[in-house]
């Protein structure tokens, strides 16, 4: 881990200083905290964290719930329920994020209007809905794989001690599946954080949008986008460490399990 921190520190140091030269085309002054305008720019850029984090968290939360609801029919013995799950997953998975975002933001209000409903979709909720729904197809598959990876004997044993389907899921299958589901689920969360950048195109004031706005006024794309990338890097690293910690906590008795 020490090695990792040093590697990242070097990377950041290298990006900020290593390629800059007095006579070159570098213009780090746009984000130089020692100057007044640089500091204003930095503050403006970093202020996007709140929106990106909030957007990602809400979208991830909805996606985790929605994914579970979508996954449950896939475990049924009823072919109709299973095919409902298949259709949802295949259909949603096939839509690229950007077109879906446009459809939700510009298209959905038209549908609401034609139904006589007064529903406004602002950039924030448009992005939340899109990210959550788009991601739910993937989380559903993660749940399905995790649950199906639990040996059939576990369910059979639960049945022979008289547990109902719901009890079997709650006390036997989910607790075991959770440890297998968590790492890929965290992966999806990181994916959501990164994909939230698309929200910038519908005017959501998050990290990417703010970077774009500064680029337009300062015309220093390299420096500002570099900072933008570093902002996402920090965010994702924090999530990664958090997940590692959680995995360790949940898997503390791993050796005792199989």
């Amino acid at each position: 881990m020490n090695f990792h921190i040093r590697l990242y520190a070097f990377l950041i140091f290298f990006l900020l200083t290593g390629c800059s030269g007095e006579s070159g085309n570098w213009g780090w002054y746009v984000i130089d905290p020692s100057t007044k305008s640089g500091w204003t720019n930095i503050k403006f850029l970093v202020a996007g964290f709140g929106a990106t984090i909030l957007l990602s968290l809400i979208a991830a939360f909805i996606s985790i719930i929605l994914g579970l609801i979508v996954a449950l029919p896939s475990l049924s013995s009823n072919w109709f329920l299973r095919s409902c799950n298949r259709v949802y997953v295949e259909f949603i998975r096939a839509i690229p994020l950007l077109p879906m975002l446009f459809w939700v933001f510009y298209g959905l209000p038209v549908i609401f209007k034609s139904l006589g409903l007064q529903v406004e979709i602002d950039a924030f909720w448009g992005a939340v809905i899109t990210l959550a729904v788009s991601d739910s197809a993937f989380t559903a598959e993660i749940y399905r794989a995790g649950i199906q990876s639990i040996a059939k004997g576990q369910r059979e044993a639960a049945q022979t001690i008289g547990l109902s389907y719901t009890q079997t899921m709650r006390y036997v299958i989910f607790p075991q599946a959770l440890r297998r589901i968590l790492p890929p689920l965290a992966n999806q969360f990181i994916y959501i954080v990164k994909m939230s950048a698309f929200a910038s195109v519908i005017g959501m004031q998050e990290l990417t949008r703010r970077a774009n706005e500064i680029v337009v006024t300062e015309y220093r794309p390299l420096e500002i986008y570099t900072l933008l990338i570093l902002e996402y890097l920090v965010l994702v690293l924090v999530i990664s460490f958090g997940v590692r910690w959680l995995e360790k906590k949940l898997g503390s008795n791993e050796s005792a399990m199989n």
Binding site: G153, A158, I161, G162, L163, Q176
Partner: peptide, 20 residues
């Protein structure tokens, strides 16, 4: 087919508490 995530005693009481 014991439940690996539960202790021996929890394996034993799961049926009686939840099913019975």
């Amino acid at each position: 087919n014991l439940f690996p995530h539960l202790s021996v005693i929890d394996n034993l009481i799961l049926g009686p508490t939840k099913a019975l």
